[in-house]
Amino acid sequence: MRKKEEPYLTGNLTAMIDVVFQLIIFFVCAISMQNNTNDESITLALAPNGVAETEKNPREVRVDVHKDGSLSIAMQPIKAELLGAILEKTVADFGGNPDAVPVILRGDMSVLHEKIQGALDACSQAKIVKIRFAALKEKGS
């Protein structure tokens, strides 16, 4: 009588591969969403000696000043007068302490100071005296 052949030992990897792909898709989407918070149209000036930005403060307000002098927060265009009111409200929400609201000013390198002045005056309106000027420490590409 012929011997019956036993099947080789195999593992079903389908479920594992499914999970791996799910994780890859999640991370790829999460990373691209995080990058979208920075306006790519703004060319920052180089500052190789500046303090590297390691982590983001959830309270921070990033104000973008574009080449044409227009202002925006989180990619939403905003007027200087409204920016002052928003910063005042933010300071009031954090117990009226202006130091609790870090303001990061991301100005295009070619923009004139008179355009930056609008954003700085809005900070003064909200009694925010400590300003962080964003720059590029190291260019990636």
Partner: peptide, 27 residues
């Protein structure tokens, strides 16, 4: 996957913050 990430990845810019005070006109 390795080939995809090697082609798709782009080096990340490192940002820096330069602190300064903006005194109010009265101060």
């Amino acid at each position: 996957l390795l080939s995809f990430f090697l082609l798709a990845i782009k080096p990340v810019d490192v940002f820096a913050n330069l602190d300064a005070f903006r005194p109010s006109p009265e101060k």
